[in-house]
Computed example of a mutant assay.
Amino acid sequence: MILVENGQPSDVRQLRYAPAPGAGFGVEVLSFERLRQLDRGGRRTGPQRPDFHVLALVRSGVGHHAADFVDHPLRAGGVVWIRPGVVHRWTDVDRVDGPLVLFEPGFLPAWGPAQPAAADAFAPACWQLDDEAWALSLLAADHLGREHAAAVADPRLASPPLLAHLLSALVLRVLPAGGEHLGGEHLGGEHLGGGHAGAERTGNPGHAEQHEIFRRYQVAVEHRFAEDHQVTGYARILGYDRRTLTRATRAATGLGAKQFLDQRILLEAKRLLAHTDLPVARCAERVGFADAANFTTFFQRQAGLSPSRWRAGHSGR
Rank of each mutant, 00 (worst) to 15 (best):
S159R: 00
S159N: 04
S159I: 00
S159G: 01
P161R: 01
L162G: 01
L162E: 01
L162F: 08
L162C: 05
L163H: 05
L163R: 08
L163V: 08
L163F: 11
L163T: 06
L163S: 11
L163M: 08
L163A: 15
A164P: 00
A164V: 02
H165R: 02
H165L: 15
H165K: 03
H165F: 15
H165A: 11
L166H: 09
L166S: 10
L166G: 03
L166M: 14
L166K: 03
L166P: 00
L167D: 14
L167I: 02
L167S: 15
S168P: 00
S168E: 14
S168G: 12
S168H: 02
S168N: 06
S168F: 01
A169M: 13
A169T: 12
A169C: 04
L170S: 11
L170G: 07
V171D: 06
V171R: 06
V171P: 11
L172P: 10
R173F: 04
R173V: 00
R173P: 09
V174C: 12
V174D: 15
V174T: 13
L175V: 05
L175H: 03
L175C: 03
L175F: 00
L175K: 04
L175D: 02
P176D: 06
P176A: 09
P176G: 03
P176W: 04
A177F: 09
A177I: 10
A177R: 05
A177H: 08
A177Y: 10
G178H: 14
G178I: 03
G178E: 06
G178L: 15
G178D: 07
G178F: 14
G178R: 12
G179F: 02
G179R: 03
G179C: 05
E180F: 01
E180M: 04
E180S: 14
E180C: 02
E180A: 11
H181C: 10
H181K: 13
H181G: 08
H181L: 13
H181Q: 15
H181S: 13
H181D: 14
L182E: 15
L182A: 11
L182P: 01
G183C: 00
G183L: 03
G183M: 01
G183Y: 06
G183V: 03
G183W: 01
G184E: 07
G184M: 10
G184H: 07
G184R: 10
G184T: 09
G184C: 11
E185H: 12
E185D: 12
E185S: 14
E185Y: 10
H186K: 07
H186S: 11
L187D: 08
L187S: 05
L187M: 15
L187F: 12
L187R: 07
G188I: 11
G188A: 09
G188Q: 12
G188Y: 09
G189N: 06
G189R: 10
E190C: 03
E190S: 09
E190N: 03
E190P: 15
E190G: 05
E190K: 13
E190F: 13
H191G: 05
H191M: 13
H191E: 04
H191R: 14
H191Y: 05
H191K: 06
L192N: 02
L192V: 05
L192W: 14
L192C: 02
L192S: 05
G193E: 14
G193V: 10
G193Y: 10
G194F: 04
G194E: 14
G194S: 06
G194M: 13
G194D: 07
